[in-house]
Design a protein around this nucleic acid. Structure first.
Length: 428
RNA sequence: GGAUGGGUGGCCGAGUGGUCGAAGGCGGCAGUCUUGAAAACUGCUGUACCCUUGCGGGUACCCUGGGUUCGAAUCCCAGCCCAUCCGCCA
């Protein structure tokens, strides 16, 4: 959510920003309603003030008649106040409905346009592999090597679920270990978070559970939902808190399961592990001072690159275009790994994403900071970035490291945890 | 699942109808003292919003939503959440 005052004072700029981000919102209408609301608020406050005055005077009134007259006066004022308050609240609701749809401001260097305008800003150190044999995709490899069981997953929980088996299990654990290790070294506090969160937390972070187009699984008869990412729980962790400026920035890396309904995603390039209903993810998250967030964003992107370079997976980094940023992000870098088995002859597929949400999430989650000795509070900035989304990382590893004989080499950095150099199945 | 007890300021914790935005403590800020620091002592110290060029003034907020009342942190109703104990269980 953007600051109301800022919207009113920069209506033209905000309207323009909405256009660029492909969101249709009537900012002028909000400004108009806000003016009405303020006038109404003054009316409410004035009536309240007078009613309070009357109430205080009742104790002093000696004469019973006088007393009754005062009471009647008080009653009348409170009723008038209630009426004005109701009008005010209606306005407030209308304003909020508009305000909630306004996306975050945008970094001036973010490319303007839709997905096709996103800008490639960098490549990984690993070159795209050339194969002199027919390339298999991860589904074939996973089946042949007995690593992934989609049929079993579907039997138990439906399409989009799967069993990881054998070395795939070791790879998942190794990826977690590897990522968490690197991040601890980079000063992150490792955290395993709940896999469920309250509605208000989801909303604060910017997810909308229980809508018709929701991506979120909700628990019946409760206001809990399964999280779609640890961003939700890590951001929610400090909801409603006032942090000490001296404690910032706070850098966390959280491991959680991620659940997504992927409603309406059928038919998209989503074979195998690419678009699943559950996966594990190691997520980076930071609470920072406002003037720290841009540097932290670069830091996140840097770390993601470092991880995928170390894994030996080719990738490119995308500076996401305005139309593709979603609501909360001020700027977003996506890291797209080369997936040789995807599409026709291989394509890049998104594996991580790092967003600077500035104070957009913090305002909804009500996370502020205070400088010692300074009056008042300010909203923190929040950032999130994927370290490793296991399912997609698995795709990239299996497909890039496949060999002519159908085996898959284990990335060197993961061998300590996987315990072998090569994944292969002996014919029985 | 059963039984209790709770949700009050940055934190802890008093407060059962007006004098309560709220005692006390911690933390923070300023000062006295000290070569400096610590300790001790003194004073100040919630948040949001509105009006005002400024000085300043006002309104709301004691989990949420209803209700009673001229007036509610305080009384009534409903809900949400948290904690502890017991049972069950990895």
């Amino acid at each position: 959510m953007l600051d109301r005052k800022y919207i009113v004072e920069h209506a033209e700029e905000v309207q323009q920003n909405c256009r660029r981000r492909g969101v249709e919102v009537d900012v002028a209408r909000l400004v108009e309603l806000e003016q009405q609301r303020r006038a109404k608020l003054q009316e409410v406050q004035e009536l309240n003030r007078r009613a309070n005055e009357v109430s205080k005077s009742i104790g002093k009134a000696k004469d019973p008649d006088e007393r009754e007259a005062r009471k009647a006066e008080g009653r009348r004022l409170r009723e008038a106040k209630e009426a004005a308050q109701a009008e005010h609240d209606t306005l407030e609701q209308e304003i909020l409905a508009i305000q909630a749809r306004i996306p975050n401001l945008t970094h001036p260097e973010a490319p303007v346009g839709d997905e096709s305008d996103s800008r490639e800003i960098r490549r990984g150190t690993t070159p795209i592999p050339q194969f002199d044999f027919p390339v298999r995709d991860h589904v074939e490899l996973g089946e042949a090597l007995d690593l992934i069981d989609f049929e079993g997953g579907a039997r138990v929980a439906g399409h989009g679920f799967y069993f990881l088996r054998n070395e795939a299990v070791l790879l998942e654990l190794a990826l977690q270990q590897f990522a968490v290790r690197q991040l601890i070294d980079a000063g992150f506090t490792p955290v395993i978070t709940p896999d469920l969160a309250y509605q208000e937390i989801l909303n604060g972070v910017g997810y909308i559970p229980r809508g018709p187009e929701t991506q979120i699984y909700s628990i019946e008869n409760s206001n809990l939902s399964l999280v779609a990412t640890a961003e939700i729980t890590l951001g929610g962790w400090q909801a409603g808190q006032v942090l000490d400026a001296d404690d910032l920035p706070i850098k966390l890396c959280g491991i959680s399961h991620c659940f997504r309904t992927e409603a309406g995603a059928a038919g998209r390039a989503s074979r195998g592990l690419y678009r699943v209903h559950q996966f594990t993810k190691v997520e980076m998250f930071a609470f920072t001072l406002p003037d720290q967030s841009e540097a932290m964003h670069e830091h996140f992107c840097q770390l993601e690159c470092q991880l995928f370079d170390a894994l030996g997976i080719p990738y490119r980094v995308i500076d996401t275009a305005t139309g593709d940023l979603g609501g909360p992000a001020y700027r977003k870098y996506d890291l797209e790994a080369w997936m040789p088995g995807r599409g026709d002859g291989g394509t890049f597929g998104e594996v991580t994403s790092a967003s600077n949400c500035t104070d957009y999430q913090a305002r909804r989650l009500n996370i502020r900071f205070k400088r010692t000795g300074e009056k008042g509070t300010h909203f923190v900035h929040t950032l999130n970035g994927t370290a490793v989304a296991i399912s997609r990382a698995l795709i990239a590893i299996l497909e890039n490291y496949q060999q002519a004989d159908g085996s898959v080499i284990v990335p060197e950095v993961l061998r300590p945890w996987v315990g072998k150099e090569r994944i292969e199945r002996c014919e029985e």
